[in-house]
Structures are given as C-alpha cells and as structure tokens.
Amino acid sequence: MSDGIILAYLGAALAIGLAGSGSAIGVGIAGTTGTGLMTEDPSKFGLVLILQAIPGTQGIYGLLVGFLVLTKIGVFAGSPASLTVKQGLMILYACLPIAIAGFFSAIYQGKTSAGSIGLIARRPEEVGKAVVMPAMVETYAVLALLSSILMLNGVEV
C-alpha cells in the first residue's frame, strides 16, 4: 500500500468526522431550544423539526466529500489506486474546506436556528423568514462543499 493513500484516508475521515460533529452540535443546540418551545406548544413540532434539521446538512456534505474521495481512490472498486505522497496530500487539502467550514458553520447555523425557533414561537406566520436566516449560514457550507469538490476533481489519480 502506498503512503499517499493514508493521507487520502485522513482527508476523508476529517471531512466526514468534523463536518458531522459540527452538525451534531448545531442540531443539538437548535434541538434544546426546540424542546423548550415544544414543552409549551407541541403543535409547533413541524416547524421546529425543519429548523432543527437545517444544521444537519453540513454532515451530509462532509459525507458526500468523503464518498467522492473514497470513490476516487478506488476503495469501493476493491483495488485502491497507488498514490504518491503528493497526490495524497492534495486529496487531504481538498477535504479541508468542508471539514473546517462545515464544522463551524454547522454550530453557528444551529445557534441561528435556535434564534429562529424563538421567532416562530412568537410569530408562527413568519416561518419563511425564520428559515431564511439559518439558510444564509448554509451558503458558506455550500461554498466549502463546492470548493472541496472542485479541488478533488483537480487531483489526477
């Protein structure tokens, strides 16, 4: 097995792990506020669920990037390609945008979601606007995902 593939594995692990933890924290934060609201008004479950799920996307993006990496290096095909250290490092770096941006954006998105849950508690009719706010944070996770994919595509295996 070549040295490069270890680095590529590390990249995939970071992308899935960090983005996933970020999402978990974010969903958790939004969830606590959501349970608080639902204690008083269980009928808001639907709206709360949407807002709570929004920070979860970063984890999915991380997983996507991880899958792309694993496909690229041929793990699923059964015969991992042999990579040089240089190629391995490139894959690792390509994973970093979604790992880092995913982690932090998910947490802040969780907080914004919690704020939005507060908003729909008072004004359930403003649910559209309440969703837009955390979605703004999503932009940067999407940008990170995009750059990760582009960078990954640039690596010649």
């Binding site: 934060i29 606590t32 506020t33 959501g34 349970t35 608080g36 609201l37 639902m38 204690t39 008083e40 008004d41 907080k111 919690a114 849950i117 507060g118 908003l119 508690a121 008072r122």
Partner: peptide
C-alpha cells in the same frame, strides 16, 4: 450560554 437554550425556547412561547 447554550445551556439556557431550552429555557429560552420555552420562554419565547411564554412571552406570548
């Protein structure tokens, strides 16, 4: 203080 998330969620409703 994220540990106040639950409290704040409930209060948002009670404020009505």
């Amino acid at each position: 203080l994220e540990e106040y998330g639950y409290a704040c969620g409930r209060i948002r409703d009670l404020e009505k």
